[in-house]
Design a protein around this nucleic acid. Sequence first.
DNA 1: AAATCGGGGCC
DNA 2: GGCCCAGATTT
Length: 365
Amino acid sequence: MNYTCKKLEMNFSKRLLDWYKIEHRDLPWRHTNDPYVIWLSEIILQQTQVKQGLPYFKKFVSKFPTVHDLANASEDEVLKLWQGLGYYSRARNLHHTARFVSKTLNGEFPNNFNELKTLKGVGDYTAAAIASFAFDEPVAVVDGNVQRVLSRYLGINTPINSTEGIKEFKTKAQKLIDISNPSVYNQAIMEFGALHCRPKSPKCMFCVFQQDCVAFQQGLQEELPVKLKKTKVKKRYFNYLVLTDSEENTIVQKRSGPGIWQGLYEFPLIESEKEQDEPISSDINELTGLPAKSIEVVKIYNDEPVIHLLSHRKIMATFIEVKINGPLSGIKFSKTYEIHKIKDLSQLAVPVLIQNFIESEFSMA
DNA sequence: AAATCGGGGCC
DNA sequence: GGCCCAGATTT
C-alpha cells in the first residue's frame, strides 16, 4: 500500500464520520451493544427500509426482551408479529436461531464474523453488522447503501448484483473501513447512502466528497450504480373458497413450503392457469370433501380479481363465498384444514392479501 | 449464475 | 410502471 492510497482512506473516513456526527438519525438499535437486539434489528431491516421496520423492531423488543423470550414463543406467535413485513423466511429463521442460541449456546451469541455466519438467516452483511456493532470487529458491511456509495465514489460500473461485482465491492469496502472505529464507520457509510448518496437525486451539491468522488467529477452519479435487470413478474391466479356455516365458522389451511407465504394461513385455495369465472362445484367438493348437497350457495365477493403485487409475482385473486348447510364442526375434511370462528381469524398470521379481505368483509360492526 | 422470497414508498 | 430497500438461501 502506498502513501497516497493510505492518505485517501483516512480522508474518506474522517469526512464520513464528520458528516455522520451531524446528520445521523437517532435510531433505537444504535443505543445498545446487546448482540441479541442488534441481531434482531438486522434481520428485520434486511431488504426493508428503516421506516417500515422500526415499528416491528419496537414490537419485538417489547414482547421478547431477551433471546430466551423469543425462543420460548411459538413459531405461530412470531409469524403473527411479523405479519405484513414480508420475506417470512426471515421470521422462521429468526425463531429457529433464537432457539439455537437460547438452548444450545446458553443464550450467548457467537462473538465473531465467521461463527455468526453459521446462524440460519445470517449472511455476509448481517454477520459483519453484528460483529462490528456488538464486538468491534473490523469487518466492513456491504449492503445496497454501501454498494451505491462506493460505486459512485470510486467510479465502479461493475453490476452490483453480479458475482464479480459482489466480490469487488466487498474487497473495496474492506480496504476503506476505519479499523480504529469499525462500529461507527459501518453505521456511517450506510447512513450516508440512505440519506445523502441516495438512489435518486443524490445531494451532490452539498457533498463532502465532491473533490474525490469519481461519479460527481464525471457527472455519472445518476448512472451509478449499475444493476443487472431482474426477472420478469409472472402472473398467478388464486381462487379462495370462503366457507361459512350456521355457526359463523370457516376453514383455513397453513401454507407449507416451498413457495410464498410459508407458515401463514389462508382459505382453501384453487389455483388456476388463467382467470376462472366460477369454480365448478366438483372442485369445491374435491377440495373440502363435502357432499354437493350440503353446499347451498356459491357467490363471488369481488367482481374483478383483487390484484396483489409481489416483487416477482402478480397475483389475481378471487374470493368465493360457499355457504354450507349446517355446522362445519364435526365434518371430517380430506385435507388438513382447521376450523376457526370468523371473528378469531385475526389471531392467525395471514398474508396481507388475506388480511385485507378479512378486514373489508368481516370487520364491520 | 439465476431464481426465489413481500410489501411499502417513491417517482 | 419501474426501482429501491441495513439480503439470504435455494436451484
